[in-house]
Design a protein around this nucleic acid. Structure first.
Lengths: 202, 202
DNA sequence: TATGTTATGTAAACAATGTTCAGTAAAATA
DNA sequence: TATTTTACTGAACATTGTTTACATAACATA
C-alpha cells in the first residue's frame, strides 16, 4: 500500500515549501526577516511545526547556503567553457561578481552573515562541496596559467588572493551602499588583469 | 562654584566607563556578547541607566567603530613614514592587514557586522572621517606611483581595488577560521606586489 | 532652614526573538 | 471498533533591546 509513500512525499513537499518560503523571505527582505514565526505564517503552519522538519533556524540557513553555493558553482562552470587559462581567470572573476550582484541576500547569507555558514560551505573537504569545486575551477586555471608562463609560484596562494579580492569587491559593494565607485565588474576585470600581468612581468 | 563642573565630569566619566566596558566585552567575547544587561552589570548600574548616556546599543557600537577607525588610521600613518610610493602601498597593505589580525572583533564590528557602521565610517565625507583619511593615504601613494611610471589609470579605481583586496584577505581569514592557508601578511604582500608590477608592466 | 526643582537611577513592563513541551486531534493499523 | 502511531499546535520559557512611570537624591531658591 502506498500510504507510507504518500506521507513521505507530503512530508518532503512541506519541507521544500519551508525552504522555498525561507529563500523568498531572504531574497525579498534579508536574512533577519526570516523569522520562524513569519516562516510559519507563510506556509500556514504553527512555528513549532517547522521543528519537525529542521532542527533549528540555522539548519535552514545552512541548507540554503549549500543551494546558493551550487548556483554559484554552476555559473562558474558555464563561464570557463572553451577558454584558455587567462581567459578562464577573467571569466571566473566576472561570474563570481555577477552572482553576488544578482543574489545579494544569498551572497550575504553565505559569505557575510555567520562564519559558521561559510565554514560549512568549505568544510566538507572530503566530499567535495560546491564551494570547494568552485575553488578547484579557479585553481585549475591558475595552475595552467602559471605553467604556460613558466612561473614558479604557489598556485594555491594566487587562488586565495583572487578569491579574497573578488569577495572584497562584492562585499564592499553590498555593504557600502552609499558609496558609489567603479562597478564591481570593472574592478574584478582590473583585478584579474593585474594578477595576470603581474605574474607574467618581472 | 564647581558643582556643575564636577557633575559634568562624573557624567562624562560614566559615559567613558560604558564605552570601556563595551570595548572590553566586544574584544573578549565579540559583539553579540555586548548586551545592554551585561553592560549594565559591568558598570554596576541598571540597564535603563545606559540610555541616559546613549540613545541605543547601536550608538555605542558606532562610537566604538569611530575609535577603531582612528586606531587603524594611526597605524597606517606610521606605516607610510619616509617611503617612496611603491613602498607606501606595500606598507599600507601590511598595516591594514595587521590591524585586522590584532583587533579581530573590532575589525568585525567596523567592516563586517552591519553595513550601517561601515557606511557611517565612510559617510561623513564633508568632515574627513578617519576612514576617509586612511583612504586618502592610499590614494596619495597610488597617484604618486602612477605618475612615476607615467601610467594613465584612474587612481580611485586602483584604491578601491586595493582596499577591497585587503578587506577580502582579512575578512576571509576571520571568517574561515577552519581553513588555514597562507598568512594574511603574505597574501597582502603578494597583492600589493602584483598590483605594482601589473601596473608597471604591459 | 524649609520648599520647590532638577538631575539621576531603577523596577517593571513591552514586544519580539528562537525554542521546547505537554497535550490534542487525526490518521493508520489491528 | 479499539489502539497505536503520527502530525500538529497553544502556551510557555528564556533571551533580546527599549520605554515608562515612579522614586530618590542633590541642588537652587526663598
Amino acid at each position: 500500500m502506498g500510504i507510507r509513500e504518500r506521507r513521505e512525499r507530503e512530508k518532503a513537499e512541506l519541507r521544500q515549501r519551508i525552504l522555498d518560503a525561507a529563500q523568498h523571505l531572504i531574497t525579498e527582505e534579508g536574512f533577519a526577516a526570516m523569522t520562524m514565526r513569519r516562516l510559519a505564517e507563510q506556509i500556514e503552519y504553527s512555528p513549532a511545526s517547522i521543528y519537525l522538519h529542521f532542527k533549528s533556524r540555522e539548519e535552514i540557513a545552512r541548507e540554503l547556503c549549500e543551494l546558493g553555493c551550487g548556483k554559484l558553482l554552476s555559473k562558474m562552470q558555464k563561464a570557463v567553457a572553451g577558454k584558455d587559462a587567462a581567459g578562464r581567470i577573467h571569466a571566473l572573476g566576472q561570474a563570481y561578481v555577477r552572482f553576488g550582484l544578482e543574489n545579494p541576500e544569498t551572497y550575504r547569507l553565505i559569505f557575510m552573515e555567520d562564519e559558521a555558514y561559510m565554514a560549512a560551505a568549505f568544510g566538507n573537504q572530503s566530499e567535495k562541496s560546491a564551494a570547494n569545486q568552485a575553488g578547484d575551477l579557479l585553481l585549475g586555471a591558475v595552475q595552467e596559467y602559471l605553467k604556460s608562463i613558466r612561473r614558479r609560484q604557489k598556485a594555491q596562494e594566487v587562488v586565495q588572493l583572487l578569491w579574497a579580492t573578488l569577495h572584497g569587491i562584492v562585499s564592499l559593494h553590498l555593504s557600502c551602499t552609499g558609496f558609489q565607485g567603479a562597478p564591481p565588474e570593472e574592478l574584478a576585470a582590473l583585478a584579474t588583469g593585474l594578477v595576470v600581468k603581474g605574474l607574467a612581468g618581472g
